[in-house]
Amino acid sequence: MSSSSGDAKSPVTSVTNLLAGLLLVGGASGLLRELFGWIQFLGFLRYLIPDGWEVFGYVLMMVAGLAVGVAGDHFAKQQKERAGEKEEG
């Protein structure tokens, strides 16, 4: 399905944005839970982190979220550039 509007996002960009947000929020909430013990948001992500490595795991999860977000934005910019070249050419 193609769209002529310039604001339409590809499914890959939408998935990477969702995954990046989930990793960032999950990592931050897990880190806050480990450090302060008062936030219990997205608790199912704690099963991804090995016992004894909670703080490192949640920081790594946040870094992975940032990396996925940057990669998704880069992919979206490349698609926009390719679409612009096809319209010109």
Rank of each mutant, 00 (worst) to 15 (best):
M1S: 11
G84S: 12
K80C: 06
G52T: 01
V68S: 05
T16Y: 06
V63N: 00
A28F: 09
L31Y: 03
A76Y: 07
Y58A: 01
A71H: 04
V68C: 04
V55R: 09
L60P: 00
E85C: 03
G57N: 09
S3V: 10
L22V: 11
K9D: 13
T13Q: 13
G37F: 02
I49C: 00
A28H: 02
L24I: 10
W38C: 03
M62T: 11
G26M: 05
A20I: 01
S2L: 13
E81C: 10
V70S: 01
Q40T: 08
F56P: 00
Y47L: 04
F41H: 08
G21M: 09
A20M: 07
T13Y: 14
G43E: 13
F41R: 10
A83S: 15
M61H: 00
E88M: 10
V63K: 03
L48S: 04
M61N: 01
A28T: 07
S14F: 14
P11W: 15
Y58F: 13
S3P: 00
M62G: 07
Y47D: 04
S2Y: 14
T13D: 11
R33Y: 14
A76R: 13
L66N: 05
V70K: 10
R33A: 11
E88I: 08
L45T: 09
V15T: 15
S29C: 12
P50M: 05
A28S: 11
L23E: 06
P11N: 15
G69R: 07
K9A: 15
A67S: 08
L60K: 07
K80P: 03
L32R: 12
R33L: 02
L19Y: 06
V63E: 05
L24G: 09
L31R: 01
L18F: 13
G30H: 04
F44A: 07
L42H: 03
G26P: 02
K86H: 12
T13R: 13
G37Q: 02
S29T: 15
M1F: 07
W53T: 08
F36Y: 10
L48Q: 09
R33H: 14
E88V: 10
Q79V: 06
G27E: 04
K80Q: 13
L24T: 07
V25Y: 09
A28K: 04
M1E: 13
S3E: 12
F56S: 04
A64R: 07
A67K: 05
S10M: 03
G57I: 04
G21I: 00
M62L: 03
I49D: 01
M62R: 02
A28M: 09
D73E: 13
G69P: 06
G21R: 01
E34C: 05
G84R: 12
M62F: 10
F36T: 00
E81L: 15
V63D: 02
G65E: 06
M61Q: 05
G65Y: 06
G21Y: 02
A71M: 11
V68P: 09
